[in-house]
Amino acid sequence: MPPKKEVRWKLTVDEYVIRNSPESWTSQLPASSETSPAVCIPPPPPQPNQDLPLPRAGALEFHRSLMPAQALQLDFSFPSDAFRRNPQLTPTLLNEPACTPPQSVVQLRISAGLYVAEFDVEHTPRGRAVTVGDILTGIQAHVRQYDCGRAPPEAAPYMHRRIATVNGYCPTRDRDGRKEAATIAAERQGGVRVADHLLGHTLFAGLSPQLGQRENYWQVELVIPERYA
């Protein structure tokens, strides 16, 4: 697959993630067998990005936590156990509708680095409104999938960086060397993931509507976090 770039950001990486240490923060998500890195104080929310399109008046509106101006800084390439430990995301927040009016199915599009894909997100049981938690866990699960094919050479450095930095940026005094080594070993198993094809674009920057598309078709905006910069 030839490299694909979509330049849509005036906001620089340094401006967006200068205080982002670490970037893997969510909340009470489903349990996972992957080993989790140490917990650190979550970063403050990013500043608004005026360049991203927002829903027009009277149209479908995203939940505030999914909008570019207020999107929670979440690195989707971290393991699920680390991903679900964000104290900002309470069960109440995760269970709120992802948009107004509510939607029973949402189609998301990811286009970053070498990767382009579309996938649906539904609530379980089906028929109920898609929630904030459904959106965030759906993206994270998709990005963490193993690559079934042969990864291009461009993805290799990002796989190595993902593995090497899986323990985050927690203070040294809070670290357990043996536990960190075990976490790295667990992250190394399985090889390349979809995240590596994104070439470092794994930090959530909100959702944006797509002109000419139906209201429940959304682009996942991603930028490069500090761990890949």
Rank of each mutant, 00 (worst) to 15 (best):
L211I: 09
I110A: 07
L211F: 09
S208L: 03
R144Y: 05
S32H: 07
P152N: 00
W9Q: 11
S80D: 04
T172K: 14
C170G: 08
T183E: 13
Q50G: 08
W9A: 07
V166S: 07
R173W: 14
V166L: 04
P79C: 14
Y16T: 03
T90P: 02
V106I: 15
G138W: 11
A31D: 14
I135R: 02
D81E: 13
Q47V: 11
I184Q: 11
C40W: 14
P171T: 06
V106A: 03
E226H: 13
P45L: 01
Q47C: 08
G177H: 14
V194D: 02
S104H: 05
F83P: 01
R193Q: 15
Q28V: 08
R162Y: 09
S32G: 02
T12E: 10
A57R: 14
G113I: 05
V223M: 10
R85E: 04
H63C: 04
A195S: 14
A98K: 01
D134N: 13
L207E: 05
H160G: 07
E118S: 10
P97D: 06
S33K: 07
V143Q: 00
P101A: 00
L108P: 09
S36C: 04
R178K: 14
G212P: 06
I135T: 03
P22D: 09
D81C: 08
A229M: 12
A112E: 00
K179M: 13
R214L: 06
P48L: 00
Y115T: 01
E187G: 09
V106F: 03
E23D: 13
I135F: 02
A129H: 12
H197I: 02
E187L: 08
V143G: 00
H201L: 06
N216K: 04
E122S: 11
V194L: 06
Q73L: 14
H160D: 12
S21V: 07
P153T: 04
T100S: 11
K5L: 05
L222N: 04
L114D: 12
R161D: 04
R175E: 07
W25N: 15
E61C: 05
S21A: 13
R150P: 06
I41Y: 15
R126E: 12
T100A: 09
P125S: 02
S27C: 13
V121G: 00
S208W: 00
G113R: 05
P153Y: 03
R175K: 14
V17I: 07
G138M: 07
G191F: 00
P125F: 01
E6A: 04
P44H: 01
P209T: 00
I139F: 06
Q140S: 15
Q145H: 06
I135A: 06
V130K: 01
L11Q: 15
A229P: 11
E61V: 07
G149T: 14
W218Y: 10
A71N: 00
P157H: 07
